[in-house]
Structures are given as structure tokens and as C-alpha cells.
Amino acid sequence: MVFTEKANKIFQQAIRDYHLTDNVDTEMKNPYDRDSIEYKLYMKCWIDTVQWHLEDLIRDPHIDLSDALALKRRIDHSNQDRTDLVEEIDTYFRQKYADITPMADARLNTESPAWAVDRLSILELKIWHMQEQTERKDADQEHLARCQAKLEVLLEQRVDLSTAIDQLLEDYQAGRKVMKVYRQMKMYNDPSTNPVLYKK
């Protein structure tokens, strides 16, 4: 099984599991071994799924301001968890291809494989929720047709992005590309680099 075939199945599983309760406070029950890449992929999509629904909640025009602030803080924390997990997935890839000697003319990629996998996880969420829109009983035919057209684009995008990721991994394996990872180094969460925090 190629990598993205496995990843997409795990993402679909995480999204289905979340929607058994459809509650942002549901505890994740990751079925995979903690040290495995499968565990990281499941956890990655679970974080994305919870955050998707937090983003829905915070857009309620009638939300209490104190609730909105609490949600914003939670989303910020979730974003940091997401970034940390992407970096863990990149560590997996870096270790996987550590013994590969790149060719003399090997090229760099614009993003690391884990950030592409991040987009694949979020794309699976878009597919799930767009599919929901195509099945709504309270929406008119125009809405359903518009969402069906969008769903078809998203499904095509899944094929293209999956193919591109698998080709990138093949290039690493063959030494045609150089595996190089840069950490995000986010500054706003760090009390030593965010001036609003360190000037207090």
C-alpha cells in the first residue's frame, strides 16, 4: 500500500470516529500503537477535525464574547499542537530516508512531506463536510448542485495531492530530491519572542 492510500484511510477513520459524537470535547481514542506513524496520522486528523468544529463554533454571530475568547485560546493551542505534530511526522520521514545519498543534481521541494500530508488531512475534512452538504434535506437544488460540483473538484484534488506526495516520497527514496526540514519557529506563542508577552 502506498503511503497516501494508508494515510487517507486513517484520516477517514479519524473523521468517522469523531462524528460518532460530533462533540469537540470528545476524548480521542487512537487505535494505533503510540510509536507508529499510523498513530501520528490519526492524531493529526483528529486535531484537525476538532479544530474544524471549533472554527465553526467561533463564527456564531450570537456567541458570548467571553466564550469567543476561550475558543480563540483553544484554537491557538490546537494550532500549536498541529504544528508540533507535523514536525513529528517530518522527523519520521527524515529518519526513513536518512540513509539515502542524494544525487549530485538532487533538488529541493517547496515544502516538507509532512506539510503536504497536513494539507491532505484537511482536504479529507473538506470532502467529508462537502459530502454532507450534498445530502442536506433542508437545502434547495441549487445549493445541492453547487456543493456536488465542489465535491467533485475536492475528490480530484485528493487524487492529485496524493499522487504528488507519493511521487515526492519516491524521489526521496531514489535520491532525486533532498530531504530537508525547517522548523516553523512560531514566535507569537513564545514568551521570549512575542513583544506583547516579554514587555510585560
Score class of each variant (00 low, 15 high):
Val2His: 07
Phe3Ser: 00
Lys6Pro: 02
Lys6Met: 09
Lys9Arg: 11
Phe11Gly: 01
Gln12Trp: 11
Gln12Cys: 14
Gln13Ala: 01
Ala14Asn: 06
Ile15Lys: 03
Asp17Tyr: 12
Asp17His: 15
His19Val: 00
Leu20Cys: 10
Thr21Gly: 00
Thr21Ile: 02
Asp25Pro: 10
Glu27Tyr: 14
Asp33Trp: 09
Arg34Phe: 15
Asp35Leu: 09
Asp35Cys: 02
Ser36Asp: 12
Glu38Leu: 06
Tyr39Trp: 13
Met43His: 05
Met43Ile: 00
Ile47Pro: 06
Thr49Tyr: 03
Val50Asp: 03
Leu54Ser: 03
Leu54Asn: 03
Glu55Lys: 12
Leu57His: 01
Pro61Phe: 13
Ile63Glu: 06
Leu65Phe: 15
Ala68Ser: 12
Ala70Ser: 13
Lys72Ser: 14
Lys72Val: 11
Arg73Leu: 07
Ile75Met: 13
Ile75Asn: 07
Gln80Leu: 13
Asp81Leu: 15
Arg82Phe: 15
Thr83Tyr: 13
Thr83Gly: 06
Thr83Ile: 15
Asp84Gln: 10
Leu85Phe: 12
Phe93Ala: 01
Gln95Trp: 14
Tyr97Leu: 04
Pro102Cys: 11
Ala104Lys: 15
Asp105Ala: 12
Leu108Phe: 14
Leu108Met: 07
Asn109Met: 06
Ser112Gln: 07
Ser112Asn: 07
Pro113Gly: 02
Pro113Lys: 08
Pro113Ala: 01
Ala114Met: 04
Val117Arg: 06
Ser121Ile: 08
Leu125Pro: 05
Trp128Glu: 01
Trp128Thr: 02
His129Glu: 09
Glu132Ala: 00
Gln133Glu: 05
Thr134Ile: 08
Glu135Asp: 06
Arg136Cys: 00
Asp138Glu: 04
Asp140Ser: 02
Glu142Ser: 06
Leu144Ile: 12
Arg146Val: 04
Cys147Asp: 12
Lys150Met: 05
Lys150Val: 04
Val153Ser: 02
Leu155Gln: 13
Glu156Asn: 07
Glu156Cys: 03
Arg158Ile: 00
Leu161Lys: 01
Leu161His: 02
Ser162Ile: 04
Ile165Ala: 06
Gln167Arg: 10
Leu168Arg: 11
Leu169Arg: 04
Glu170Ala: 13
Asp171Lys: 13
Tyr172Asn: 04
Tyr172Thr: 08
Gln173Trp: 10
Val181Asp: 08
Lys186Val: 00
Asn189Cys: 06
Asn189Ser: 11
Asp190Ile: 01
Pro191Phe: 15
Thr193Val: 03
Thr193Met: 04
Pro195Gly: 03
Tyr198Asn: 02
Tyr198Pro: 06
